[in-house]
């Protein structure tokens, strides 16, 4: 099976400022791939380019063996993107929001219902889906958005810090949701600076800093290579 995503020599500058200085990685079918790195490392920039929001300055991206830059409509059909800081329309009820979003992906009313049903199960918000999004807590909104990102069974789910702003229990739940969904055939590309979370979630990781990939591999492999007890130590060791 071909890679879901192959990124080669990806560069991005904002005016004078270089955010990505040449990045390579790939996401294979059915795996969770994580970009980990400190603030300002370039994680969000990378994910936004892959989500067709930003244009790369240089480099090649292949998505399901197609040219990512030339076929943004095809890419948008197959991916879903959960931004780092995202909201839902405040005046919509949670359920209406899910219907609104599902409508863009569903080919039939039955499929729309299937998507929404799945999202309802994933979000686990119960009756609160009947109230307006504006009344939700941060964690509830995050779960709603995560549910909407996973409901369409995208080929690639791009999740930018999926657990940001969540308490321990909610973060745990979200991680479990993500893990479960990959089993059902969705690849995940996510970012985080929580190394422990990454160890639990990811099949493979790439350590990123100042727009460059320092190292990549499975968490176990990296720990062995750097002779470190955890990913935090791996990161410190690869910085040297």
């Amino acid at each position: 099976m071909p890679n879901v995503l192959t990124v080669r020599g990806l560069k991005k500058s904002y005016g004078q400022k270089t955010a990505l200085a040449g990045i390579d990685f790939e996401v294979r079918p059915g795996e969770v791939f994580a970009l980990i790195g400190p603030n300002g490392a370039g994680k969000t920039t990378t994910l936004r380019i892959i989500a067709t929001l930003l244009a790369a300055t240089e480099g090649e991206i292949r998505f399901l063996d197609r040219d990512h830059r030339k076929e943004p409509d095809f890419v948008r059909e197959k991916i879903s993107y959960l931004p780092e800081e995202a909201g839902a329309y405040r005046d919509m009820k949670g359920l209406d929001y899910l219907h609104f979003m599902a409508n863009f992906y569903a080919r039939s009313p039955e499929e729309e219902k299937e998507f929404v049903d799945r999202a309802v199960a994933v979000a686990g918000l119960g009756d609160r889906l009947g109230t307006k999004v504006g009344t939700y807590s941060k964690g509830m909104t995050r779960k709603l958005l995560l549910a909407r990102a996973l409901m369409t069974r995208p080929t690639l789910a791009i999740l930018d810090e999926p657990t940001s702003g969540l308490d321990v229990i909610n973060a745990l739940e979200v991680r479990e949701i993500v893990r479960r969904y990959v089993r059902e055939g969705t690849s995940v590309l996510l970012s985080s600076h929580n190394m422990l979370e990454i160890e639990f979630l990811s099949d493979r990781v790439a350590l990123i800093d100042k727009g460059r990939i320092l190292d990549s591999g499975t968490p176990a492999g990296l720990k062995e290579k750097h002779r470190a007890p955890n990913l935090e130590e791996v990161f410190r060791s690869s910085l040297r």
Partner: peptide, 14 residues
Amino acid sequence: QNKTLETLLTVPIK
């Protein structure tokens, strides 16, 4: 303001 634009722009619609 509501941070919904990013999501909307990745939806499959022209």
